[in-house]
Amino acid sequence: MENTSRWSRIKTYWNQPKHVGYLFILPSLIALLIFAFIPVVIGLGMSFFDVNIFFNGTKFVGLQNFVHFFSDTRAVNSIWHTVYFTVLETPVQILVGVLCAAALARNTRFNRFCRSTFYIPVVCSLTAIGLVFNMLLDPNIGLFPHLLKEIGMTSPDFFGDAHWAMPTIAFLTVWKSFGVTMIIMLTAVQAISPSLYESAEMDGASRMQQFFHVTIPQCVPALGFCVLTNLTGSMQVFDQIFVTTGGGPNFKTESTVQYIYNRGFAAPYELGYASTVATVLFVIIAILAVGSNLYMTHKENQMR
């Protein structure tokens, strides 16, 4: 008797949304705590320690890892390579995505076909795409270098030449993921209420003017989102480099994430110093994210 009344009291208590809500979010919160927040804290903390993968001879070294970072040319260069990749990849991807979205805005059969097809590379893994381009661009047997030679040009060794490797990697990344930008922009364009165009037309705006004064301002939030995710994603580039150049030639395409991996999980297995590099990257990404967010909000307000 005691038991059942206690049981029913528990039941009524937990049947109120203001209590049961915690039960609903608890599993997610625990998972996020263990696998997101705590790791960030550990990661930041580890960057002040000299610790190798065997946890042998761990000691606190203060800022020494950070001092070392700035004299470590491979680390600093990896940041530059990553930035270079981002600068090459993001604008082109956004541009191709936006152009395709603009060209595909009308709902014709051909356009629908194009939309589905352009999205196919998004579905494939960067690993697979990297391997595909490895073969297509192979200087000895690749099709593309052959075609270039056929039309009388000398073909560079796309992945092997220090000047060409990074632009090539950026190109394949654009090829793989412009579909995402295209879809997001298409959704944004299609969500614009027709009444806005009608009123613009009544004001006597030309198509050009409509594009600049209606379409673009309405798409800024979506565009901002694309830029933001692209920036933060590009700053963590790894997969496609790992399978195509592996960071070569001569570390010329080694990205920061790859350097973290090579430093922490390959000789000399310095997890502590690798965390330092990760911390630096984290700070850069945070600045980029906050910065571009602020800029976009500012732009949005300006346009309204």
């Binding site: 000895n140 092997g160 220090a162 030639p249």
Partner: peptide
């Protein structure tokens, strides 16, 4: 030799008789 070719790619040149 072309200095940008490295590692496996050099071996592959050898295997291609080049």
């Amino acid at each position: 030799g072309n200095p940008s070719t490295q590692g496996v790619a050099v071996d592959n040149l050898m295997f291609a008789g080049k």
